[in-house]
């Protein structure tokens, strides 16, 4: 069974509708560890040793966050800068993360179509997530396509619940399995893998 660690970053969860539902969904799955970064470190002082120990003890690392400005909220960047140290995550002796799996769980205001060459966001989600992809690569991790919730701002409650349920299933499935090489070759969203 894959042990899952979710690094959750949302600076104003009290204003969120989608992310709070996703978070609750994750909390309902047994054996999933969640680090709520803004709640744990309101003054930005990240406990690096604690975070690194958590990484060592898990197989799948999920960055769950709103897709602010085509990236993660500041705290998650801070987390990467501090926790993914040379000698731990990368470098000659830095192989603590080797063979583990990384994926982003994101919520975005724009539609799926807007994230394309023709859409107003001009790039696909996969393209925009390249920095995470390469971060995983440098750390010797396997990077999966994202689980994404699009068009969040006017999303009806039922639809949010639907996504929360889908996310719950994703976590359950990830605990037991990972997408195969062949699946990954054509997979653009983890959403599709759960439903397959």
């Amino acid at each position: 069974m894959n042990r899952i660690l979710i690094l959750f970053a949302h600076p104003a969860l009290e204003k969120s509708k989608v992310q709070i539902s996703l978070l609750k969904a994750a909390q309902s799955v047994d054996g999933v560890t969640i680090h709520d970064l803004y709640e744990l470190y309101p003054d930005g002082l990240i406990d690096v040793v604690y975070e690194q120990d958590a990484l060592t003890e898990h197989d799948i690392i999920l960055f769950q966050h709103p897709f602010y400005w085509y990236s993660a909220p500041a705290m998650l960047k801070e987390w990467q800068d501090l926790v993914l140290e040379y000698g731990f995550a990368y470098g000659a002796s830095g192989n603590a993360l080797r063979g583990k799996t990384l994926a982003n769980i994101i919520s975005a205001g724009g539609s799926k179509n807007s994230y394309s060459t023709h859409g107003h966001n001009r790039y696909s989600i996969i393209d925009l997530l390249r920095p995470f992809d390469q971060t995983a690569n440098l750390c010797g991790m396997n990077y999966l396509p994202p689980f994404a919730v699009h068009r969040t701002h006017d999303m009806p409650k039922e639809k949010i619940e639907m996504y929360a349920e889908l996310y719950r299933q994703l976590l359950w499935k990830l605990q037991r399995d990972l997408p195969s090489e062949e699946t990954l070759a054509s997979l653009r969203y983890l959403n599709d893998w759960v439903q397959s």
Partner: peptide, 11 residues
């Protein structure tokens, strides 16, 4: 009033 991270553009 704190308007930071209001769910307008993004989530």
């Amino acid at each position: 009033e704190d308007h930071s991270w209001d769910a307008t553009g993004h989530e």
